[in-house]
């Protein structure tokens, strides 16, 4: 076992900023959606708008970072070991079986994570961002010049945005739980805070696996 830097400074900054923004967007967003009062309706609307713009800027920078550093390859989904990973969560985890794949600097996501984050990035986030931007610039039918999008009905946009929001909340809940499934209960969390995690020394078996990937 040795301590390696598995999450670089920017990644950690990105992760935690995104985490805060998403939770904040959920709290303000569901207040706008109706049902409870926390920030006050107008504040919730305004905060939600600013946080949304912040998130879009962050996503833009992060996409840039991933392409420049080549880290985006980490998220490329692969069918390999998906079955093993599912079996691990359904059975192996209870028997204290080893993780079916090893975490390394070059492959820090397990196959299910890759699938999940890929889905998040390809489906949920774009759904929320696109409907959100339309929502943000949506102006009601008007003879004034405040109507860049000229949509006549907000309803489908609002419904899709709400669906995206529910999916993201579910994602966050599962994500929070899966933090505890690392090497120890807190090792994943510690890694995302400090950047360092104890991982097993490279061995022959693992090298083979990497080649496959």
């Amino acid at each position: 076992m040795k301590e390696v830097l598995i999450y670089k400074g920017y990644e950690r900054f990105w992760h935690w900023t995104q985490a805060v923004l998403i939770i904040f967007l959920a709290v303000t967003g569901f207040e706008v959606h109706g049902g409870y009062s926390f920030f006050g309706y107008e504040n919730a609307v305004v905060y939600h708008r600013y946080a949304a713009i912040g998130l879009v800027v962050l996503i833009f920078f992060t996409a840039f970072w991933h392409f420049i550093t080549g880290e985006w390859k980490q998220y490329k989904p692969t069918p390999q070991f998906v079955k093993e990973q599912i079996e691990y969560y359904l059975l192996g985890i209870f028997k204290n079986a080893p993780h079916p794949t090893k975490k390394t600097v070059l492959s820090k996501l397990n196959p299910l994570q890759k699938l999940a984050y890929f889905g998040l990035m390809v489906v949920i986030i774009p759904l929320l961002v696109i409907t959100g931007i339309i929502y943000l610039f949506y102006r009601m039918p008007s003879a004034t010049n405040m109507n860049p999008l000229n949509l006549t009905n907000l309803e489908p946009i609002a419904i899709l945005h709400t669906i995206g929001a529910y999916l993201l909340v579910m994602f966050v809940i599962v994500h929070l739980y899966l933090i505890t499934t690392g090497h120890t209960i807190l090792s994943n969390l510690k890694a995302m805070i400090t950047g360092y995690e104890e991982i097993e020394e490279d061995d022959d078996h693992h090298k083979k696996e990497e080649k496959k990937v």
């Binding site: 706008v32 109706g34 709400t162």
Partner: peptide, 19 residues
């Protein structure tokens, strides 16, 4: 027209909360 907080698509909210 659709107005945030006044209007909801019940199916989405019910399913969302259930999930």
């Amino acid at each position: 027209f659709y107005m945030p907080a006044r209007d909801k698509y019940e199916l989405v909210d019910t399913l969302g909360n259930l999930m």
